[in-house]
Design a protein around this nucleic acid. Structure first.
Length: 320
DNA sequence: CATGGTCAAGTGGCA
DNA sequence: TGCCACTTGACCATG
């Protein structure tokens, strides 16, 4: 399975059979769900406080450890972990968690397993991370959220490179992409080094937003962080480039690190239902992914998660 | 115990 | 103006 000359194929956050075992006939009955998305709504956080957050975080990292074991056992060598491991982390410090020692033991163990078995682990913090914002408070919140991810990867013992990437979108254009990208680059300098060294940016799926060409000219040329190419998004925002041109431009920004690309297909097409938004992701993917003879790691963004990767590899694996 | 309504944050797009 | 989508559905109160 370990072959550095081959592309890796990964899935994001949820392992379907571990998270929803009752949905599958071949899974044991009466087993606990294994998932890493435990959280709470604001009211409960205000009622139960940081101790509850600590318990949820511990439960999440315990299950992340089980998912990592599953990945290793099943030959999955590329995985995006959830950005919600530690609920409400923006509201407290790591040292406020009563279970921090235990949590760190699990994270370190997960990281050692990942490194030993060459499972590439990445993360993709959410749409509230807007480094282009003209509002100082928004940028501050973004720095807090990204710092959490940098700390987590440090706890896991990962290096300071985009091999373990922290990937975000630019998040806003405000009718002036140039000015917004200028703010992004200035705010980038405010990030801690454990984030700066791992941060990547991804092309958007709206024509008014950021294409690969925009990111290359406005971000990569100035601060040198790599671009994640998303095939599906490119269809809605091509910046004047063909798929091959955008793929090659984005993957040229990674230096010695194997680039990551994101692949998904349209739910509207899969379900043959024009009412579904074309941007929505399909359950499985069906087309051959063209990686243009370049070694890349492909994150398959499909609703059926690891099952979609298995389906793809079963369909095309022999010719990869 | 199942189900449905609701849920922190930012932004843009659509009905 | 209000809802949806996006990284990921999950939580919680009601019946």
């Amino acid at each position: 399975m370990i072959n550095n000359s081959k592309n890796k194929y990964g899935y994001a956050c949820i392992n379907m059979k571990l998270a929803y075992p009752q949905e599958f006939d071949d899974q044991p009955k009466d087993v606990e769900r294994i998932y890493t998305g435990r959280t709470m709504i604001k009211r409960i956080f205000e009622r139960d406080g940081v101790d509850r957050a600590s318990e949820l975080t511990l439960a999440n990292v315990k299950d992340l450890d089980k998912i990592m074991d599953w990945n290793i056992l099943n030959g999955f060598d590329f995985y995006r972990m959830t950005s919600g491991i530690a609920p409400w982390k923006s509201e407290y410090a790591w040292t406020d968690l009563k279970d921090l020692d235990n949590i760190k033991v699990y994270l370190r163990s997960i990281g050692v397993k990942a490194t030993t078995h060459r499972v590439r682990v990445t993360t993709h913090p959410g749409p509230f991370n807007v480094l282009t914002s003209p509002r100082e408070s928004v940028v501050e919140n973004c720095i807090k959220d990204l710092s959490e991810h940098g700390d987590l990867f440090d706890f896991m013992g990962f290096g300071h490179t985009p091999y373990n990437k922290i990937n975000i979108h630019l998040g806003g254009a405000y009718g002036d992409k140039e000015a917004a990208m200028d703010r992004f680059c200035k705010n980038f300098e405010k990030l801690p080094s454990n984030v700066k060294s791992r941060l990547t940016v991804e092309n958007d799926d709206k024509a008014s937003m950021y294409s690969v060409q925009d990111l290359y000219d406005g971000i990569y040329k100035r601060i040198g962080i790599p671009i994640v190419f998303d095939y599906h998004h490119h269809r809605f925002c091509d910046g004047g480039l063909s798929e091959r041109e955008a793929f090659e431009l984005a993957t040229s920004t990674w230096g010695d690190i194997t680039p990551v690309v994101h692949y998904s297909e349209s739910m509207a097409k899969e379900q043959n239902n024009a009412k579904i938004k074309p941007q929505a992701h399909s359950n499985l993917v069906y087309d051959r992914i063209n990686t243009y003879d370049k070694q890349v790691d492909v994150m398959i963004e499909a609703k059926y998660k690891e099952l979609a990767v298995e389906h793809y590899l079963h369909k095309y694996g022999e010719s990869l």
